[in-house]
Nucleic acid binder design. Structure first.
Length: 554
RNA sequence: GCGCCCGUAGCUCAGCCGGAUAGAGCGCCGGACUUCGAAUCCGUAGGUCGGGGGUUCGAAUCCCUCCGGGCGCACCA
């Protein structure tokens, strides 16, 4: 409907120009049509006259009146008003809204999708937790945001792939293997000195026990240096297995898993350094190699290879982003924990130094999660090792509540995750509130089926009967769905879909209390069942974009 | 000290590329089940949008400044 109003206004503007009522001038970029907040202001409002006024040097109300006179003949509108300082308010006719229900219904399961993304290729990289321990709630939020964003981008017409980058190289791997080795020794009765900066979690002991069960005591007297590769690879294998299982149970999947080791093995890191050195972006100083990131606005230059010859993590990151760019994506989305925000300028520098436009990189920063139980925050500081795992939350509240809660806030803001609320199975819990709307609609469908109304034959449904204020209001909400998804994709903000669904469910529950779908009037019943079916599909589709199930029974 | 993010109802937060009378959920209080699912609905109360200044027809939204909170500032990963 938005598009139709926009088209009508534009056509009217062109007509005003051609008839000499208004001088020729391009539409101001500040011009926009927005849904009206108040019913007195109609369905949509345009600020065209306001934005045109300074250019044309004419009072905005006078411009608005000129346009209004040309719009009043359009049958799409019941009325067009000029209001306030010069807004043009559009009152779409009831019949046009009612007919919109048929159009929404006709789109079936595709309703909500759009071509906003114009087929652009996007790589969404997220989670990418080091295989040195289980996923915690912070990763869980990143997983929910990344996976949901990918689904939303797809629905909005982007060609999307998802990827998990595995940091399986470097000192941390050594530390991981050594941690398991020491625990293995400890279990077998040796006195050990376990360093504070080694991995403290119980899962390290579990892995040591597993090795003991499978391999026995054969490594007891083998020097650490000799069997470290074995302990490391076993640990990575076990931990990765756990991470994959957690993600699978969270309904998060990746198109590819990209190993950092591969960047080194295939010489991509060295090649990237050479290339950037040749182009003058990397220089040598004090025996180390530096990337001149300050040339692109970073605070200071960054070391790529230390004077002792060891490559930094940044070196691999550089190579990884180069590799991603060369795979031909139009947009790279990196989803990081907000504590990494200081790394944005240097990665941005990499993209630019390689000759790419800076806006091909989009970094989403996901803020930390505080788990609240009994009104107080559960500890999750990493230094004490007392962080709460994603697994624990999944086992506690279930994947649907977890995903919904992770997506209730803008990714950029702190999230207080209320465990007590997430566990509740009542109206206070927003995820059940939305799911219940779906289950209710499914129940209506079952009753309609029994009464012989289903399946509907759309051609035989008189949607013109959907003329009540509630019917129209519900249609308007459904009408906003594709724009919500498109906007959510454009802004890369999945939480908008969560808010939309809560609003839709809220209105639906009220509608359900006030109006009957199945009543004495067969024609009205059929029209409302068509509306019910459209509503149910929107809720199911919306929940699907969040990765939340849409139950038919609860 | 420098940089980034955040201060909106009792609590948790939307709204922020400037638009008309600032919203939601939770919590509190009071109502509604003989008819499609009460995991629901209806109603009441609740605000100097952190303070101050600026930009303009118009500021929660943009700019400056101050206050308060979070995070980051390695030849670490």
């Amino acid at each position: 409907m938005y598009d139709r109003v926009h088209a009508a206004l534009e056509a009217c503007y062109r007509e005003a120009v051609s008839r000499g009522f208004l001088p020729e001038t391009p539409l101001p970029s500040a011009h926009q049509i927005v849904p009206s907040k108040q019913t007195e202001h109609g369905d949509f409002a345009s600020n065209l006259a306001l934005t045109l006024a300074p250019v044309l040097k004419r009072p905005p109300r006078s411009i608005a009146e000129t346009l209004k006179d040309l719009l009043t003949n359009d049958p799409l509108f019941e009325r067009v008003d000029v209001a306030g300082p010069g807004f043009i308010n559009f009152f779409v006719s009831r019949d046009a809204w009612a007919q919109q229900a048929a159009s929404i219904h006709a789109h079936g399961d595709q309703y909500g999708e759009s071509q906003e993304g114009e087929g652009k290729r996007v790589l969404v990289e997220f989670v990418s937790a080091n295989p040195t321990g289980p996923l915690h709630v912070g990763h869980g939020r990143g997983a929910a945001v990344g996976d949901s964003l990918a689904r939303i981008l797809k629905a909005a017409g982007y060609r999307v792939e998802t990827e998990y980058y595995i940091n399986d190289v470097g000192n941390q791997m050594r530390t991981l293997g050594a941690s398991v080795y020491l625990r293995y020794q400890e279990i077998l009765g040796r006195t050990i000195d376990f360093p504070a900066d080694y991995y403290q979690g119980d899962y390290i002991r579990d892995i040591a026990n597993k090795i003991l069960a499978e391999q026995g005591e054969r490594y007891l007297d083998v020097p650490q240096e000799e069997c470290l590769p074995y302990f490391t690879s076993e640990a990575v294998r076990e931990i990765s297995k756990g991470i994959r299982k957690d993600l699978e149970d969270f309904d998060v999947s990746f198109d590819s898993w990209f190993s950092e080791a591969r960047l080194h093995e295939e010489g991509i890191v060295e090649q990237t350094i050479r290339e950037l050195r040749d182009s003058g972006h990397i220089y040598e100083q004090d025996g180390a190699l530096w990337f001149r990131t300050t040339a692109f606005g970073d605070e200071k230059d960054r070391v790529v290879r230390r004077s002792n010859g060891v490559l930094t993590y940044f070196a691999a990151d550089m190579a990884y982003h180069r590799h991603k760019l060369e795979r031909g994506y139009d947009i790279l989305v990196d989803i990081w924990g907000a504590d990494h925000h200081g790394y944005v300028p240097r990665i941005s520098a990499v993209v630019q130094a390689l000759g790419h436009d800076n806006n091909r990189l989009r970094v989403l920063l996901v803020q930390f999660v505080s788990l609240i139980e009994g009104g107080i925050a559960k500890g999750m500081s990493t230094r004490s090792g007392e962080f709460v795992t994603l697994r624990a939350v999944l086992d506690d509240v279930g994947p649907d509540a977890a995903r919904f809660f992770f997506l209730m806030r803008k990714a950029d803001s702190h999230l207080d995750f209320d465990l007590d609320l997430a566990r509740k199975q009542g109206q206070e819990n927003p995820v059940y509130y939305v799911q219940y709307a779906h289950a209710r609609l499914a129940s209506v469908a079952r009753n309609a089926q029994e009464a012989g109304y289903l399946p509907l034959v759309p051609e035989n449904v008189d949607v013109g009967r959907l003329s009540g204020a509630d019917d129209i209001a519900l249609i308007k909400l459904l009408d906003a769905f594709p724009r919500t998804v498109a906007e959510s994709a454009r802004a890369m903000e999945p939480h908008r879909v969560t808010f939309y669904l809560t609003e839709l469910a809220s209105f639906f529950h009220g509608y359900y209390t006030r109006s009957r779908f199945i009543g004495d009037d067969p024609d009205l019943t059929r029209a409302r069942l068509l509306l019910a079916e459209a509503t149910r599909r929107v809720i199911r589709k919306g929940l699907g974009l969040l990765g939340v199930s849409a139950p038919t029974h609860m």
